[in-house]
Amino acid sequence: MSRGTVSPVGARRAVPLLEVRSLQVAYGGIQAVKGIDLHIAPGELVALIGSNGAGKTTTLKTLAGLLPLSSGQIHYDGKSLHNIEAHQRVSMGIALVPEGRGVFARLTVHENLQMGAYSRNDQHEIASDLARMYELFPRLAERRGQLAGTLSGGEQQMVAMARALMSRPRLLMLDEPSMGLAPLMVQKIFETIRDIAAQGMSILLVEQNARLALQAAQRGYVMESGSITLSGAAGELLGSDAVQRAYLGS
């Protein structure tokens, strides 16, 4: 397995918001993540790409606290996340938009967004954030009283993103936000991701659509069967032969 770095990223030496060291995760006896290292600086948009089954979702779920790690360390904002449960990580500022969206189908759009603010107590601020979400996604404003299960896939993805933003995260993790969406909707979702990133939020973006992800990101990691095989500046990954061959089909 080639473990290469396309370009040195040592220039950026700010204290990382997220730092993962030698992370291993297993399902029963089967290792899905085999000792990966990665970090995200404040305000950075980082893409994690790789083919189906590489271990991307497993990595995100572990970072969110939904899966236990078998070894390694996760540090967030300088603190170890060891023994911190998923629901506690939310109030620390970690949000995950899960694969398949995980929208509450039998709750209304509005209730879904309110659930996003479950970890917060500042009622006034929550109300103004809700209003902001409806500005950001006018489609959702029209459908706020509708059960989320009745929405289209793209609209559900908007609900999932707006809901995650309602927790006011500092680290937003997105698991395949473009999955199953029409091209126009994919564009809209990626525009939103860029906007959010431009406002300074740190984002870890998992995608199978490598080109889109690397075009939006500053840095990227390539994951293959549980290991990170390549990392570097997004532009250089886009141009590298290995990525071109494996993920961009050229």
Binding site: H87, F104, R106, Y118
Partner: peptide, 24 residues
């Protein structure tokens, strides 16, 4: 109520509810 909303959320999807900060 907020509690009721959390109950319905947990009933529907425990993982997603945890991701909202709900102590299931």
């Amino acid at each position: 109520t907020r509690l009721g909303c959390a109950m319905r959320a947990v009933a529907e999807n425990q993982h997603a509810a945890q991701l909202m900060g709900v102590d299931i």
